[in-house]
Amino acid sequence: MNQEIINRLAVITDEEREIINGRTEIDRKRYTEGQELVIDSKKMLEHGKMIRIRPHTRFVHFPRHKHNYIEVIYMCQGETTHRIDGEEVVLKTGELLFLNQHASQEILPAGERDIAVNFIILPEFFDTAFQMMGEEKNLLRDFLVGSLCFDPRYASYLHFQVADVLPVQNLVENMVWTLLNDQPNKRSINQVTMGLLFLQLMHYTDKISHTTESFDQKLTFQVLKFIDENYKDGELTELAARLNYNIYWLSRAVKRLTGRTFKELIQIKRLNQASFLLLNTRLSITDISVAVGYDNTSYFHRIFRNYHGMSPKEYRDKNLSLPFPEGKR
């Protein structure tokens, strides 16, 4: 992260100065008026605001607490140790930690050079990110759904070990910079940036760790990860062989866990990828059909229309204003 940003976040806050001067625990009134330590968004956010950043409070043990908002922590420098629903998570430089509203968190004392920034975010801020992610099932979408409905079946946290992923680092830095400098239109800018961040993170499922899963959660993740990586030609027989499950049992399990058949999940992934290619490349519709796994262009046209209510050409024309060269449609 840019050193100027780190220097601004590293400044000793009034709260930290009180701790240095002898306070041995956090001042609960800074965070809540209630008896239980549930950090209140009304204490953290100005009226009408949906997102804010603040430096993580150092030098003190932060006792077990919950939030009535979604918290995202980015480690700018150093590391912090968190206990989330009894699991220990060490957040290192360049890594992201998403916390659900139902998660119980405890944080061990951080040193002066351990610089983390906390994003305090109301759930409605993520509306744009939802739209940008599309309707296919993925771990981030499920996480947000769990946050919105306080459903404990969903992951309590997502830990992204993405320090080596430059686009992710750039997007996080852009959000921090925009919020620190109070840039005009910062809400719209950051909602779109968060959507772009999620689209990037969706490509790095191998870099996610999260709450210890039940068998059903683990299987769902394995199925969706396989589809993400093999949507063009992936077969249920191949997945069953990889996981060493009976194909008929696996087929029923996929339907029970996702509400869709394996074939339907593959098709949704292909059509969402086709939509992305229509709007972000100049590939012909025939080339896009083949790229997502459909050699029969007529069949691709038919299922695309059934899914989107319009043909691929109509979808491209409606959603994209950039002109395309002759012969590329």
Rank of each mutant, 00 (worst) to 15 (best):
N2S: 08
Q3K: 15
I5Q: 13
I5G: 04
I5R: 00
N7A: 11
E15A: 04
R17V: 06
I19M: 08
T24Y: 07
E25F: 10
R30K: 07
E33A: 14
D40P: 08
K42R: 09
L45D: 11
K49L: 11
V60E: 06
F62G: 08
H67C: 03
I70V: 07
G86Q: 02
G86M: 11
E88S: 00
T93C: 02
L96T: 00
L97F: 04
L97M: 04
N100E: 12
L108M: 13
R113E: 14
I115M: 02
N118K: 12
F126I: 07
A129K: 03
M132I: 12
K137A: 03
L140G: 03
R141E: 08
R141T: 15
F143C: 03
S147D: 15
H159G: 12
V168R: 00
V168L: 08
L171W: 06
V176F: 06
L179C: 07
I189G: 09
V192T: 03
G195R: 06
G195Y: 10
L196H: 00
K207Q: 10
H210L: 12
T212I: 14
S214H: 05
Q217R: 14
K218A: 05
K218I: 11
T220Y: 02
Q222L: 15
Q222R: 05
K225T: 15
K232I: 08
G234I: 05
G234Y: 11
E235A: 09
T237Q: 13
N244R: 06
W249V: 06
L250V: 00
R256Y: 14
L257E: 01
L271W: 02
Q273R: 01
N280W: 14
I288P: 03
V290Y: 10
Y294C: 04
S298D: 12
Y299T: 08
F304K: 03
H308F: 10
P312L: 13
L322C: 01
L322E: 11
L322K: 01
P323I: 00
